[in-house]
Simulated assay, not measured.
Amino acid sequence: MRTGQTQRTATAWQRLTAWLRRHAPTSYASILPPATEAEIEEAEDHLGRRCGYGFPPEPVTLWSLADRHRSVPVGCRSRQVAE
């Protein structure tokens, strides 16, 4: 179940990706599919063991919509967008 803030995060992400799809298709193509629930749980467990707390709900919402970015060709070379 989403809270108001996580719903706003999801809505903002949907608006951003719609804009990217239309105006920046290369950037849109670099968005990886959502992280699985198991991947998110593993990351939260790891953080909990190391630091004693979990992630805020907003990044978890983003990861459930898209998991990072991949390298995309920029000009004549490939550049790492984000990891």
Rank of each mutant, 00 (worst) to 15 (best):
R70N: 05
P57A: 11
Q80L: 12
C51L: 02
T6W: 03
V81C: 00
G54S: 09
H46R: 02
R8F: 01
A66F: 02
R79F: 13
L65F: 13
E44D: 06
R2Q: 14
L62V: 15
G48V: 04
A29T: 02
P34D: 03
Y28S: 01
H23Y: 10
E39W: 10
L62M: 15
A29M: 01
A38K: 10
R2L: 10
I31V: 02
A10Q: 14
Y28H: 09
Q7W: 03
I40N: 03
P25K: 01
H69G: 01
T11Q: 15
S64R: 14
A82N: 04
V72Q: 08
Y53P: 07
L16N: 04
S71P: 14
W63N: 01
E37D: 11
P34V: 02
P56W: 12
P25D: 04
L32I: 05
Q7F: 08
Q80C: 07
P73V: 01
T36S: 08
T17G: 05
W13S: 06
R8D: 08
E42G: 11
Y53A: 12
V60L: 06
L32V: 07
R70E: 05
P73C: 06
V72Y: 08
A10S: 14
W13R: 08
V81Y: 02
S78A: 02
G52A: 04
V81I: 09
Y53K: 11
L65G: 11
Y53T: 14
S30F: 03
Q14D: 08
A24V: 06
R70P: 01
Y53L: 06
T6I: 04
W13F: 15
G52Q: 00
L47R: 15
G54Y: 14
R2V: 05
G52C: 04
Q14P: 01
Q7V: 01
G54D: 11
V72L: 13
C76N: 07
P59K: 08
H69N: 06
T61K: 15
G54E: 09
R79T: 09
S78M: 00
P73F: 04
R50L: 15
W19S: 12
G52N: 06
A82P: 00
P56L: 15
T17I: 11
Q14W: 03
Q80M: 05
H23I: 05
C76P: 09
S27M: 05
E58M: 10
C51D: 07
I31Q: 00
R21H: 10
L32P: 07
T61N: 14
T6P: 05
A18C: 11
